[in-house]
């Protein structure tokens, strides 16, 4: 704990500030680099303060098209990635909340069997089943489509388990009260389960959005066309082995733009789900 004496408080603060500096400096430096011209970046040392090329670099990157990735501009990449991340996050939540609903609240033959089947898929991450999945996508003609980019990543045992655990904490009496009140399964789901799961959905959305945003291996395989790339893939393609060949200023702009949306989601949703957490009663 932080002591009461002045010196111990100073020390504590100093350590914390150094920590923040270590974490934040690379990001700051990326931003600085994104505001200088390519010449400045290639001629070390790189200045520590932002340069005067901000508007120029950002507008070129966003709307001008970048040569190394086939003239696609970053706004297309941002759009692609947003679609992919949203589809994955929403799709995963949609599918897993429904399967958890079925497993927890319905008595059907093979209920536990299906639960375990879902559970077992935890042991088969994308990387393990990547070749067969790729083959299936090729056969279905889904290469270079949003469906191909997102569908194989949508099923989620983790989210299903999370919702299942949450649903199990909902008292049986509440379910019965709803039955007496004349709420059928769907109405119960919509009026009671969904509002009660708000917090869980918000938390999952943040995690899954970032998961979708940072996907690398699968988008790399399943997209050939440059205008279907996600931003992470494009970023890698923009970097050439030969230093002089790489438009570093645009790479840096892309970097900054790539980390902005996840940060935005975290910041906005955090307010939301902290509120949810504070309001929750148990």
């Amino acid at each position: 704990m932080i002591g009461l004496s002045r010196s111990s408080r100073y020390t504590a603060h100093a350590i914390l500030i150094i920590g923040i500096f270590i974490v934040a400096f690379p990001i700051y430096y990326t931003f600085v680099a994104s505001t200088h011209s390519l010449q400045t970046i290639l001629r070390p040392p790189l200045p520590l303060l932002p340069g005067d090329q901000f508007w120029e670099n950002y507008s070129t990157a966003l709307f001008g098209g970048i040569g190394r990735i086939g003239g696609v501009d970053v706004s297309t990449l941002l759009f692609n990635t947003t679609v992919v991340a949203l589809a994955i996050a929403i799709g995963k939540i949609f599918i897993s909340i429904l399967s958890a609903f079925a497993i927890v609240f319905f008595r059907f033959p093979g209920r536990m069997f299906f639960f375990w089947v879902i559970f077992i898929t935890l042991m088969l991450p994308v990387e393990v089943r990547i070749l067969p999945t790729y083959k299936v996508m090729v056969d279905l003609g889904l290469i270079d489509t949003y469906t191909g980019l997102t569908l194989p990543l949508m099923a989620s045992a983790t989210a299903t388990l999370l919702f299942r655990q949450f649903f199990l904490t909902i008292p049986g009496e509440l379910v019965e009260a709803a039955r007496v009140d004349g709420a059928g399964p769907w109405r119960f789901f919509k009026d009671i389960l969904l509002p009660l799961s708000k917090t869980n959905i918000a938390a999952l959305f943040v995690i899954l959005f970032i998961y979708g945003w940072t996907q690398y291996l699968w988008p790399l395989l399943v997209t050939n066309r440059n205008d279907m790339n996600t931003i992470v893939i494009a970023l890698r393609k923009m970097v050439s082995f030969a230093d002089a060949d790489t438009q570093w200023h645009l790479v840096m702009v892309t970097c900054v733009l790539a980390i902005l949306p996840p940060i935005l989601v975290v910041v906005l949703m955090q307010r939301w789900f902290v509120k949810g957490l504070v309001e929750t009663e148990k």
Partner: peptide, 28 residues
Amino acid sequence: PAERDIAMVFQNYALYPHMKVYDNMAYG
């Protein structure tokens, strides 16, 4: 249960935690 035209009061009240008192009573 809904077709029997009965009303039940539960041991732990079983109120819908996210609904106002008004909505709790109006829901059925």
